[in-house]
Deep mutational scan, measured.
Amino acid sequence: TIDDAFRAIERAIQAENEGRYREALKHFLDGGEMIVTAAEKEASQKVRNLLLHKGKEVLEWAEHLAEWILE
């Protein structure tokens, strides 16, 4: 659900702030994927587009974090 997705993102932010970057990455990926999944089930085109945009933002952040971890 969207609530689960945002809880995962909150955990990711907390982990990132505490320097637990790999854990943060996992939570960002989980949250982003949950948002995209919820968007695919959404009946309203406007809400679907907003959710897809937010999911994409979260997944892009996860990608940047992963690249930073690997440096």
Rank of each mutant, 00 (worst) to 15 (best):
E10K: 11
K46A: 15
E63C: 12
T1E: 08
E16C: 15
A8D: 03
R11F: 07
I9E: 00
L25Y: 09
L52R: 04
K41S: 08
L50G: 05
G55P: 01
L52F: 07
L59Q: 07
Q14C: 10
E18A: 05
K41W: 06
E10W: 13
N17F: 11
G32Y: 15
A39E: 02
G32V: 15
A66T: 05
E60V: 08
L51N: 00
K41I: 06
Q14P: 00
R7D: 06
L52C: 14
E67R: 14
I69W: 05
L52A: 03
H53W: 09
S44G: 08
F6L: 10
A12D: 00
Q45T: 11
V36Q: 07
W61L: 11
H27G: 14
K46N: 07
L65V: 03
N17D: 04
N17W: 10
A39F: 10
F28I: 04
I35R: 00
V36L: 15
H27E: 05
E60M: 15
L52D: 02
A12V: 03
E67W: 13
I69G: 00
S44N: 14
L51R: 00
A39P: 01
G19H: 05
A5V: 07
A5G: 02
D4V: 08
E18Y: 03
K56I: 05
A39W: 08
L59K: 06
E57P: 03
I35E: 04
A43N: 09
K26G: 05
N17R: 15
H53R: 13
A15H: 10
L50D: 11
K56N: 07
R20M: 06
L25N: 00
H27N: 10
K56L: 09
A43T: 12
I13S: 01
E40A: 13
A24S: 03
Y21M: 04
I13M: 05
F28N: 00
R11E: 08
L50K: 09
W68H: 05
H64K: 14
L50R: 10
Q14M: 10
E67D: 10
L59C: 09
V58D: 01
R22T: 10
A38P: 02
D3V: 11
D30Y: 15
A66K: 12
I69R: 00
V47W: 10
G19F: 03
R11C: 10
R11K: 12
N49E: 14
E57L: 15
L51F: 04
V36K: 14
Q45D: 10
F28D: 00
S44R: 05
Y21P: 02
Y21L: 07
A43V: 12
I13W: 09
I69H: 06
A38T: 06
L50Y: 15
Q14S: 05
W68S: 04
I2E: 02
V58C: 05
I35K: 01
A12S: 02
G55A: 15
I69M: 08
A15L: 15
H27A: 08
M34K: 08
L29Y: 05
V36H: 07
D30R: 12
H53D: 11
E63F: 12
E63N: 13
Q14W: 06
L25A: 02
E23P: 00
T37V: 13
Y21A: 01
G31E: 01
A66R: 13
S44W: 07
E40K: 15
L65N: 00
L51W: 07
W61H: 13
V36N: 08
K26E: 08
I9P: 00
E10I: 10
V58R: 00
I35Y: 08
I9G: 00
D4R: 05
G31A: 15
E16T: 15
E18K: 05
I2H: 01
G32E: 09
E23V: 04
G19E: 02
A66S: 08
K54P: 01
A5L: 12
A8H: 11
W61G: 02
V58G: 00
F6T: 05
I9F: 08
R48S: 07
R11G: 08
V36E: 07
E42A: 08
Q45E: 15
E40G: 10
H64V: 10
N49T: 07
L59W: 05
G32A: 15
D4P: 00
A43S: 10
I13Q: 04
A66Y: 13
E10C: 14
K46G: 11
F28T: 01
E23Q: 04
H27S: 04
G31Q: 05
I9W: 06
L70P: 02
D4N: 04
D3S: 13
W61A: 05
E71M: 12
E23M: 03
V47D: 06
L25E: 00
E60A: 10
T37P: 03
K46Y: 13
E67H: 12
E63S: 11
L50C: 15
G55M: 11
A8Q: 08
L59V: 07
A8M: 14
E63T: 14
E57W: 11
R7G: 04
A66C: 15
E57C: 15
A62W: 04
E60P: 00
E63Y: 13
R22C: 15
I9D: 00
L51H: 00
F6Y: 10
G32F: 15
E18H: 07
A8T: 11
S44I: 10
V47K: 06
I9L: 12
M34E: 02
R7T: 07
E42W: 11
L70G: 08
A66Q: 06
L25I: 12
E23G: 00
H27M: 12
R20L: 04
M34D: 02
I2A: 04
H27C: 09
W68Y: 09
S44Q: 04
I69V: 04
L50I: 15
R22W: 09
A8L: 15
K26C: 14
I9V: 05
E18V: 05
Q45P: 14
E16F: 15
H53Q: 11
W61T: 08
A15S: 05
E57F: 11
E57Y: 08
F28A: 07
R48I: 07
K46E: 14
W68V: 04
I69A: 01
E63L: 10
A12R: 02
E23H: 06
K54Y: 15
E42L: 10
D3W: 15
E67K: 13
A5Y: 07
F28K: 00
D30K: 12
Q14N: 09
W68K: 06
V58T: 01
G19M: 01
E67F: 09
L70I: 09
L52H: 04
R48C: 13
H53G: 10
R20D: 02
L51M: 04
G55V: 12
L50S: 07
A66H: 08
L29T: 05
E10D: 10
G31P: 02
K46T: 13
E63D: 08
F6Q: 04
E71A: 12
E60C: 11
A5Q: 01
E23S: 02
T37S: 11
T1M: 12
A43E: 09
R22Y: 14
Q14T: 07
K26T: 06
N17Y: 12
A43G: 06
I69C: 11
L29E: 03
R48D: 06
E18T: 06
R7H: 07
E71V: 09
I35N: 02
H64Q: 11
L65T: 01
V36F: 12
E57R: 10
T1Y: 09
A43C: 12
L70F: 11
E57M: 15
R22E: 14
T1C: 10
N49S: 06
T37Q: 15
R48V: 05
A15V: 02
I9Q: 01
G31I: 15
G31T: 03
N17E: 08
G32Q: 06
D4G: 04
E60S: 11
E33S: 13
H64C: 13
K26Y: 05
N49M: 09
L65H: 01
D4T: 06
